[in-house]
């Protein structure tokens, strides 16, 4: 159970303060698929960063099963991320000089996880282990990045526009993998996107404007990926 209360995060924008998060409160149950929607600049990424412990808010609290992460020092924060979270980035950030296998190990090593072949198979990467990232398509790279994230067995997977750089078909493929693996491995997904269609597959949809949550919709019966259109 993830509980967010009264989060405020501001940035100095020239002379005035810009509130990227303005008193945001929210709670997310375990194993939910949360999608955060909103126009560009509405504070989605900031919210994701604060929840995931990449950034400290000005005030407010973020608690994971009663463990408060706001106010932790850098080291404690690192250990928290190491233990609980994983990330998928729009730009993949695979280490360009490492093979697929080594890239996945980057995640696995953090938790001392020796067996990575299951996750490689689960993402259909079998046979590509020895390739370097530049030898893969965008979709394949994003799958490697999912494998890398899940190889560390996170409780929470944070994704910022994970399909932002991919075409419709590949995006759907990625989302299918994500949903499938979530069911199998049981973790919570919190995903930022500007693509409203993706909201249909989520269990909870959060809409943001100007640093505020304007709407939270729970979806008891999320659709399957192949049922949605872009």
């Amino acid at each position: 159970m993830l509980r967010i209360e009264n989060l405020v995060k501001s940035y100095q924008n020239g002379r005035e303060l810009l509130y990227a998060l303005n008193a945001v409160s929210l709670s997310i149950d375990d194993e939910e698929f949360v999608v955060i929607l909103g126009p560009s600049g509405s504070g989605k990424s900031t919210l994701l960063n604060v929840i995931s412990g990449l950034e400290q808010p000005d005030s407010g609290s973020v608690t994971y099963d009663d463990y408060e992460i706001c106010g932790l020092n850098q080291k404690e924060m690192t250990l928290f991320r190491r233990d609980k979270t994983a990330f998928i980035f729009q730009a993949y950030y695979l280490l360009p000089f490492l093979t697929v296998e080594s890239n996945i190990k980057m995640g696995a090593d953090l938790k001392g996880n020796k067996n990575i072949s299951d996750i490689i198979d689960a993402l259909g990467l079998g046979g590509l282990e020895k390739r370097l990232p530049y030898e893969l398509s965008g979709g394949q790279q994003q799958r490697v990045s999912i494998a890398r994230a899940l190889a560390k067995k996170p409780d929470f997977l944070f994704c910022d526009e994970p399909t932002g750089a991919l075409d419709e078909e590949t995006s759907k493929q990625i989302l299918t993998f994500l949903k499938q693996l979530q069911k199998q491995l049981k973790f919570t997904i919190i995903m930022v996107t500007h693509n409203a269609s993706i909201a249909q597959i989520a269990t909870k949809v959060i809409k943001m404007t100007s640093g505020k949550i304007v709407e939270v919709t729970s979806n008891a019966h999320p659709r399957d990926v192949n049922e949605i259109t872009w």
Partner: peptide, 17 residues
């Protein structure tokens, strides 16, 4: 050089660099 390393990530990074 293409690096084909099967040891842990840390070593792989260094060798790669």
């Amino acid at each position: 050089k293409r690096i084909r390393i099967t040891n842990p990530f840390k070593k792989a990074v260094f060798k790669a660099i």
